[in-house]
Design a protein around this nucleic acid. Sequence first.
DNA 1: ATCCTCCCCTAC
DNA 2: TAAGGTAGGGGAGGAT
Length: 638
Amino acid sequence: MHIDMDCFFVSVGLRKHPDLRGQPVAITHARSGVIAADPSKQAIRDQEFALYEERLPGGSSSRISDIKQKSDGLASMSEIASCSYEARQYGIKNGMFLGQAVKLCPNLKTLPYDFEGYKEVSTILYKTVASYTLDIEAVSCDEMYVDVKDILRDTGLTVEQWGFHIRKEIMDITGCPCSTGFGANRLQARLATKKAKPAGQYYLKPEDVALYMAEIPLGELPGVGRATVTKLTRLGFNTCGELLEGGSVKVLQAELGLKLGERIWEQAQGIDSKSLDFNHERKSVSTEVNYGIRFKTKEECYTFLESMSKEVFTRLSEINMRAKGLTLKLLIRAEGAPVETAKFLGHGVCDSITKSSTSNIIYSKAEIIFKEVKGIYDKLNIPFAELRGIGIQLTKLEKISEMNKALNDFLKRGTTKQVKKASYDSKCDNNIVINKAAGQTQGKKDPNGNIKNINTKTLQSFWKTSSDDCSQWKHNQNEHLRNGIAIDVFNELPPTIRSEIMKEYHIDVRSVTNISAASKTVKPPSTLEKIERPNTPFVEQSWENIKESVKSWIKTENQPSEVDVDILADYLRNLALNRQIEILFTCCKFFYRKFSILNCKWHKVYITLIDAVQQGMLTNYGKMLYIDQATFSCCKNK
DNA sequence: ATCCTCCCCTAC
DNA sequence: TAAGGTAGGGGAGGAT
């Protein structure tokens, strides 16, 4: 399943402006499409346009025609970030300048950005889908791929029923519509979503793929943009059908390169072998400012580089990583480009330069980043007044795990030289110890296949969150990481270091061992061992059996009986008492999935069960398990 | 032969 | 007034 919010920014904006529903609406910074007449702007726009055209021969990008069309000097150059479907009927498109859009539709209404709103809706979107499955690949704040194979199998729903259900749930909770596409691979699902929009769904069935693909314009294939379309058009191909008819892999590869050529050839047939990536790891962190760069002094320039260094380092620290590579990117006013740009404080026509640092530095502090950035900039010998854009990118990232951090801090304090000596080998400095441990973490990543912390990562990639409602959720996910994964690393450490750390941090030896044992023995549901504590009728049963019992219970009983609920609640409480957190998590997800689609009486069963879980959790851990499920609209009182 | 750097292209 | 930024894939050609 591919799922995508419909004109996301507009939909979020309309929540606070319901009066504008059904009208042509656009999200922009500017409020009006008309600006004060300024004859001097005219010459600048003409000059810039000529230069753009010279640099992009034949490439009639919408932006250039925008500048041309608005050469009356009265039109706003504020960009449209997102526009409603009503606005699209007038020919308005995302990325278009407001001035031109207003000419197409004088009645166009504008709304300002609402970044808090995007964050909120995005978080709900991801949490909602994640309450059914964690097999999610995030694409952006409003778009993702989901493997729904298990959901369909477990619930018995058809593709259509499931699509309807999830879209309705998202609409109900967020007030924003989305569309979903289904297919045998990510390409088919994605193209299906295009047809589904707005506020719809479409299942591209295997038997329909060939006919469907033939009509698809090549530019609609993911990965095929402006430049590639130009090349393909020159070859005489406009649609996938035409390409398959008259082209070949060889021709494509000769024109577009080996990889892209092969990919387009396969895509044209509806083939896409790339699997979903549920556990994406960041490869770079960067920060870039290409607006409003007009330095008056060299000091100003250095100060800015310094603050950007701090910013990019903050972002690196937030995802708990460190970097070994750095690239500086500069936009420089092109020769012949006007010093004052057509767009107020825009970067205008520029040359772009990137320069990587080749030294073997670990960027573990903002000052180190700044020093390197300044060094590269000075060497490039570019006048500060010519700068129009600056970017710093950190690459060659490495994960710093929680336990490694603790270990690092601990070793840095230098409590005992012996501890250092006892580490892996005499040549190791602190950093190398950390490295080895990190490698182990990654190698053992997610051994159970049960709990993937995709959602933490997903959200962290898009929103820096610290104080909002999902911070607790993230916190708990991290806690799981410590219990389930980092403990593995801990156990690999030499005994001397282990005992030192435990003393230092007052870690209860027994609890560490228990948690570790639990996390190691838990296997996927199909092969779960028997539950230990002989306390309930379920005690000798595997999770798989219990799951089946619950399914038939739901099917056969019109009403849940109190006795049954009590038995189930006991079982869950004992899972918590036995520190079987991973099974618990699976249980809770399963129950939510089952009970949420039933009536309110069953919702109450769910709530009772979760209460039992939390009782057990509080008894054993003094903390509650963070179970993030949407509340049931029919029983809002809870 | 393979790696690295710079750059282009693309998505959203 | 007006306000992209962030990330990834991959190719060309030099460096190793």
